[in-house]
C-alpha cells in the first residue's frame, strides 16, 4: 500500500502536521484570542482533537490545513466562551469579548487575507498597501517607486491576481 505521509493517528503524523501548520495556526489563534497563553492552549487542543479524529480526515474532501482550521474553529469558540463566562471579579478591566461564531468567521477571513498578503511578492504587497490601505495617489506612489503611473495601475491588477491565486491555494472560496 502506498503511503505519502504518516497518518495523523501516529506521532510522526502529528509532528509533521505541526511542523507544516503549527506556526500558522498559532499566529491565527493569537490573532483571534489576543492572548498568547490561550493561543498555545488552542494549538495543543487542536492537534489533540485532530489526532483523535484522524480516521475522519479525508484529504480528498479538504486539505489538512483546511481541516485543522475547521477543528481550531471549535476550539477557539470554546475557549472564547469559557473566557467570557469567567467571573468578572477576576479581571474587571477585561474587554467584552464577542463569542459568536460570526466573530470567529470574521477573524478567520481577516487572518486569511492578511496571510495571503504576507505571501505575496514584495512589489505586489507594497503596491496594495500604498494605493489601497494608505490610499495614496497613484502619481505620488509612482514617483516614490520610480515607475510610470501606468505601471502602478497595472501592478495593482497583477497584485490582485496574485492574491487571488494565493488565497485559492490556501483553500479560500469566494
Amino acid at each position: 500500500m502506498e503511503r505519502r505521509t504518516p497518518a495523523l493517528d501516529e506521532e510522526d503524523g502529528v509532528r509533521a502536521a505541526y511542523r507544516a501548520h503549527g506556526a500558522e495556526l498559532f499566529g491565527f489563534a493569537v490573532r483571534s484570542l489576543s492572548d498568547h497563553g490561550l493561543a498555545e492552549e488552542a494549538v495543543q487542543e487542536t492537534f489533540l482533537r485532530a489526532w483523535r479524529a484522524a480516521d475522519r480526515f479525508d484529504p480528498s474532501i479538504a486539505p489538512l490545513r483546511t481541516w485543522l482550521y475547521s477543528i481550531m474553529r471549535n476550539v477557539v469558540i470554546d475557549l472564547t466562551r469559557a473566557r467570557a463566562v469567567r467571573p468578572a471579579v477576576a479581571s474587571p478591566t477585561e474587554p467584552v469579548v464577542d463569542t459568536s461564531a460570526d466573530a470567529y468567521e470574521r477573524a478567520l477571513v481577516s487572518w486569511q487575507v492578511e496571510e495571503g498578503l504576507r505571501r505575496l511578492g514584495e512589489d505586489h504587497r507594497r503596491i496594495l498597501i500604498e494605493t489601497y490601505y494608505r490610499a495614496r495617489p497613484y502619481a505620488e506612489v509612482a514617483a516614490e517607486l520610480g515607475i510610470p503611473e501606468g505601471t502602478v495601475k497595472s501592478r495593482v491588477y497583477y497584485a490582485l491576481r496574485a492574491l487571488r491565486l494565493t488565497l485559492e491555494e490556501m483553500g479560500w472560496e469566494a
Partner: peptide, 19 residues
C-alpha cells in the same frame, strides 16, 4: 501584515506530549 507571532519553541513538544 508584519511577521505574525511565532509559537514558543517548545510548543511542538507540548503538542506531542499532549497527544
Amino acid at each position: 501584515l508584519g511577521t505574525p507571532p511565532a509559537p514558543p519553541a517548545e510548543l511542538g513538544d507540548r503538542v506531542l506530549e499532549h497527544v
